[in-house]
């Protein structure tokens, strides 16, 4: 079940997505965290962030909109209070970093680089719910490339760029970060969406728009991972609406080497474990020797795809 993301070996391909598993300790009563391939922390910023005012979440058809606004304890308290628990885990810990300037990304990564216990970094350039940074970085190829270029010399650990689907051509972004030395890309972050209360004539979220996640976005995510897989050679981590082992296998087939389970953790934090054990069983039943053999094994009989025109 092992897979590799740059120099990082995951015991299985299933990670808990950033912002859906806290800092690990919140879920330990309900799940054997070490059964996961790894966990990605809640986004860490240089200073603590309060997050956005309520309402922050709304359920929509087979999905949910969120506008949390990167509420987090900040990197200093993470190091002092959260990292000691994470160090006790035998599974991979990936620190997710968010920032509103390039210098801030560098500062957070440097602070974490001085600590033991972090296996890789995932760089959030794609949060749709903050004014500075976030999407304004992630929808700009040159800026996304610049962030990667500045961070690359600061660490030898795997550098994963988390991309937004809110662009026309995600392959272009994947190529840009590959060109700057990123070890992997993870995709997709949430899709910009909106919910309206018709009776009150008002948006349901305090920030008007938010990020859509859950099974509703899985088809979008599969298409974006497929597109990125045609654009780059570095490993891809597929994210978007994964609830079951079969969902995860679909992401591997379109080109992902690993996956992240996100929104499903809100329903049951043990979903990642169920997905991982289900994938192992699926491989056994289908005669797949190594789960890594599934990556990119999609059989496409026709050359017609709208994505072709973008690549």
């Amino acid at each position: 079940m092992q897979v590799h993301i740059g120099s990082l070996t995951l015991r299985n391909p299933v990670l808990a997505a950033s912002g859906t598993f806290g800092y690990g300790d919140e879920c330990k009563e309900l799940v054997d965290v070490n059964g996961l391939g790894g966990i990605v922390t809640k986004s860490l910023s240089l200073k603590p962030r309060d997050g956005n005012p309520p309402a922050r979440i709304v359920e929509t058809a087979s999905g949910m909109l969120n506008s949390i606004g990167l509420a987090n304890v900040g990197v200093d308290r993470f190091i002092a209070e959260k990292l000691p628990y994470l160090r006790t885990l035998s599974t991979a810990v990936i620190a997710n970093i968010a920032a509103s300037t390039v210098d801030e990304y560098c500062a957070v990564l440097s602070l974490l680089e001085a600590q033991e216990g972090i296996g890789a970094y995932e760089i959030n350039v794609s949060c749709p719910n903050v004014k500075e940074g976030g999407l304004s970085f992630g929808t700009n190829v040159a800026m996304t490339a610049q962030i990667t270029r500045r961070l690359r010399p600061l660490t030898k650990k795997p550098l994963i760029l988390k991309l937004t689907p809110n662009v026309t051509n995600v392959g272009e972004f994947a190529r840009a970060v590959e060109g700057e030395g990123a070890d992997a890309v993870s995709l997709i972050n949430t899709v910009v969406g909106m919910a309206v209360d018709a009776r009150k004539k008002s948006p349901k979220l305090s920030t008007v728009t938010g990020g859509l996640s859950g099974p509703a976005i899985k088809p979008i995510a599969l298409a974006k991972v497929y597109e990125a897989s045609k654009a780059v050679k570095i490993p891809l981590i597929g994210i978007g609406g994964i609830m079951t082992a079969e969902d995860a296998v679909e992401f591997l087939l379109v080109g992902a080497s690993a996956v992240q389970v996100g929104t499903a953790n809100f329903i049951d934090p043990a979903t990642g474990l169920t997905v991982a054990t289900g994938m192992a069983r699926w491989c056994e039943q289908q005669g797949v020797a190594r789960v890594a053999d599934l990556t990119g094994a999609l059989e496409v009989s026709t050359e017609f795809s709208v994505l072709r025109t973008w690549l």
Partner: peptide
């Protein structure tokens, strides 16, 4: 009461504003 997703503090979806304390929510 509040709309909630997880109910256990991981989704950060159910804030209430406090007075005076160290944290806003």
């Amino acid at each position: 009461e509040s709309v909630m997703a997880c109910g256990i503090g991981i989704c950060q979806g159910c804030p209430v504003e406090r007075t005076g304390g160290e944290k806003k929510y």
